[in-house]
Design a protein around this nucleic acid. Sequence first.
DNA 1: GCTGTAGTTGACAAATTCTTTACGGGATAT
DNA 2: ATATCCCGTAAAGAATTTGTCAACTACAGC
Lengths: 230, 230
Amino acid sequence: MIDILLVDDDLELCELLVEFLGSEGYRVTAVNDGLEGVETALSRNFGIVLLDVTLPKLNGFEVLRKIRQQSQVPVLMLTARGDDVDRIVGLEIGADDYLSKPFNHRELVARMKAILRRVNSPDESDRTRRKVLEMDDLSLNLANHEVLLGETVLDITATEFVVLKTLIEKSGELVTRDELTQVALNRRLMLHDRAIDMHVSNLRRKIGNKPDGRPRLKTVRGSGYFYIAD
Amino acid sequence: MIDILLVDDDLELCELLVEFLGSEGYRVTAVNDGLEGVETALSRNFGIVLLDVTLPKLNGFEVLRKIRQQSQVPVLMLTARGDDVDRIVGLEIGADDYLSKPFNHRELVARMKAILRRVNSPDESDRTRRKVLEMDDLSLNLANHEVLLGETVLDITATEFVVLKTLIEKSGELVTRDELTQVALNRRLMLHDRAIDMHVSNLRRKIGNKPDGRPRLKTVRGSGYFYIAD
DNA sequence: GCTGTAGTTGACAAATTCTTTACGGGATAT
DNA sequence: ATATCCCGTAAAGAATTTGTCAACTACAGC
């Protein structure tokens, strides 16, 4: 579960975001001025901070600067104007990305994920970054989303790709249905939500069994799935 | 003999600099507004551009951006205020250095020389100034934005050129629509923004298929495009 | 001002992908 | 044993995404 700190003086927006991000599976803490923002950001271990630029008591840039003196927590700046200058200044001071209001909720989530992915990736450099993920006779090309089964290219959807990638990355260990839903479908698992089962089902049909005939994916009833490692 | 373009609306300063730099052995062309600045900068092959930030018609940042769309000519920004923000913005957009007014003439010359030395250093110039980018039977001339398909010159717009260049540089790996939009259109992808799709569509029409009949560009639904490498 | 070119946007069809519903079967708990 | 729960999957339906035409806007050049 990822903790988000939202620093914004627009109470209505805060309310909306708390609800929306909550439904996406995040835990959100909202504060409404700069001082509180700095304090809260440094008091707990947040996964990411969403920081408005125009704030009472301490503006967003100042907040960011103070946070950066002590913490490398990812920060996504929010601003009212679509102003390049704000963006560049923010990035220069150490923001990870920038989004101008009004923004689409889904775009917010997309940018957050991009940041978290970047931050959590073990190595940033292009040369050393792993571009291919292999498992048994499967080969996932992370660069262009292609999946090879032996020599043949499989026709895989984006969602299926993410599901398979996740299962292979954690091969041998259980991945809950909720986790898969969050990673691949960008939402929390809901009651009677069978979508992820369908994706796993379709995936099984497409990737078939292991070369020795054993199935690749095992179901853990009541919990989730995992890719069978050897 | 090195040609200098000076873009500044302060006529007195222009006069002074023309005389001083002339006495230092440079040939100086001075223009007094942003539009003229862009035009002149792109019309001739200057050794360096001295660019004021506060300009009529088009401010220095906009001038720089427009120049950078087509040229890698060194640019030294001049600004009235000793403002960090200006400096950061300028460097971010692609200026080579920055000098705040009022400045010492000697310092101006020193900085110009430093830039020219850096730009002309042999190790940089070969890598950065590669003139032609080739892929299959396509040949992009980076210097003049000409694209050859076999022997014939294609009629390609500046935006299409950048899109194609980006896709070819990263051939084989996916380039997101957002990335393409940022690189080619200088903005981020917005909701319902189909502009990049049109550019890709037009590009496909113009460059046709590979010699063997396969398409050059593949769509990765939900993500972006990539140039099919072999 | 007029004209042409480039870029953007709306609209729509087509293709593809995702979700839901429904039913059946095996697992689990009582 | 049997009632219940959970999962597999086919099929239908909903939704999204993309390709592209055509109209529109913006703007540089004449």
